[in-house]
Design a protein around this nucleic acid. Sequence first.
DNA 1: CTGTATCCCCAACGATACTG
DNA 2: CAGTATCGTTGGGGATACAG
Lengths: 119, 119
Amino acid sequence: MRKENSTNSINERYLHKKCALNVAIDIIGVRWASQIIFSISQGVNRFHLLKEELPNISEQVLSRKLKILEKQKIIIKTIIPDSTPIGVRYILTSRGEDLLPIFENICEWGKSYSLDFEN
Amino acid sequence: MRKENSTNSINERYLHKKCALNVAIDIIGVRWASQIIFSISQGVNRFHLLKEELPNISEQVLSRKLKILEKQKIIIKTIIPDSTPIGVRYILTSRGEDLLPIFENICEWGKSYSLDFEN
DNA sequence: CTGTATCCCCAACGATACTG
DNA sequence: CAGTATCGTTGGGGATACAG
C-alpha cells in the first residue's frame, strides 16, 4: 500500500506537475518497461516469448509490468481466439508506437556510454 | 555498499548489455536527474538556484545527484573565480546538450497523460 | 555558498510456490 | 499458457546535523 503523504509521493507529484517530462520519465524509466515495449514492437508479443527473450525476469515481475503498461494504455492485451490452452497477444497502442522513434534517439545517445562504461 | 552479485545488479548488467537504450534509461530515469539537467540548461546553474527551483529536494540529494551527473560527464562543475564565499557554476557538456531535443520529444509524449493522469 | 556524514524508510524488485 | 499469492531483499530517496 502506497503512503500518499510520504515525501516520496509528494516529490513525485511535484515533479509531475512541474513538467510532463517527469511524468514520462516515471513511466519509461522503471526497470524492464522500455525493453518490454521495444521487444513487443519487434514481435516478441506473448508471455512465454517475453520470458524467453528476457530470461532473467521472473514471471511475477513480467506479469506486474505488463499489467502496468496496459493500465498506462501503452499496450493492449488481446485474447487469441480458439486456442487451447488460452493464448494472449500483446500489441502496442498508438501511444506505445509513438515511443519507438524516441527510443531510437535515446538508444543512440546511450551508445556513447558503451565505450567508457566502466569508469 | 552495492552488492555486485545481487539479482538486481545482474539484471542491470544484463539490460545494459542487451541494448544501449537501457543504459540511457538508467541515467535519465532516476528521480530529479532529468529535471536538474533541464533546469541547468535554462540557466538555473548554481547550487542555491537549484535549491530554490526545486524546493522539495534536500541538499543531500541534490549534492548526490550533481556528483553523479558530473561523473557521467553530463555536467561540468566550474569554480567561479574571485568569489567569496566560494561559488560554483554547473554547465552542460555536449553530451548533456544532446539530451535537450530528446527531452522535448519525451515531454511532448508525456503530455498525453496530463489529461487522464488520475485514472 | 556548497557541500558531506550519518542514519533511516519504504517501494520497487525479486524468489518461490501455486492456479485456472 | 498465462498468470497470482506471498513474502523476503535491496538500494534509491530522504532528514538532519555538521563542515570548509
